[in-house]
Amino acid sequence: MSLNTAAATLRVGKSVLLQPTSLTLKGGEITAICGPNGAGKTSLLRLLSADVRPSSGGVSLNGRELSQWRAQDRAQTLAVLPQHSSLNFAFAVEDVVALGRSPHASGRQRDQQIVSAALAAVDSGHLRGRCYTDLSGGEQQRVHLARVLAQIWQPSAHGERYLLLDEPTASLDLAHQALLLDVVKGFAAEGVGVCLVVHDLNLAARCADRLLLMRAGEVVASGPPAEVLTVAAVKAVFDVDVQLLAHPQSGAPLVIQNESDKKLR
């Protein structure tokens, strides 16, 4: 039972967005993907979410090729939070979250309960009756997070559940970033396989069981954050000089960027 790519590639025209990549996401495990802009992080996520078909190789979910799944069954098993949402209609917040229940036939009452619980989980219960288009960017982000959480709130009849998040912390303040990590860990503890794209290496190190570093459409390092995050690896991938400390409390690796040479001169 896993969500995995087998030597999957993605090409658009002549440009290669993703080199052959084999990756396995297991239930209960948190995988973070980091890398510079255009490294292929989102392409990988789009392959895993069946948003695009691989140009070669395959992607399978719980043992079955992703394209062979019935759309509704897949939606009960795999939830995806994209980077941006283009929703510009004045839905009530609870209606937006309730969209996450559309692949289910669990009944109105149960759906209402789940919507409330999902909103509460991302500290947005008070937004429930507000108009979505009146919210700030960060609040909208949280509402969409609640929507994808509501989508896989209950165990699926089709195997382990997976949650794919593309830069979920991009517009969140510090407190809500921490809350998001807690929520993600909570879902992982229930057996959900989580994969998130983040730019903040420290955030990735704090929550991930496994860290993937990508560059130029390739996975260049993969493993526990403490092993993957080295001064040399960060230099190679991001082309920046850093120092590595241990977090005073957790001991997790803490990446600090050096002052740039230009400034020092």
Partner: peptide, 19 residues
């Protein structure tokens, strides 16, 4: 319901199991 989901965008509607 499908039209509601489509307001999120085509990909998002697909993620929600809409054909």
């Amino acid at each position: 319901r499908a039209l509601n989901a489509l307001l999120l965008g085509e990909s998002e509607a697909r993620f929600l199991g809409i054909d």
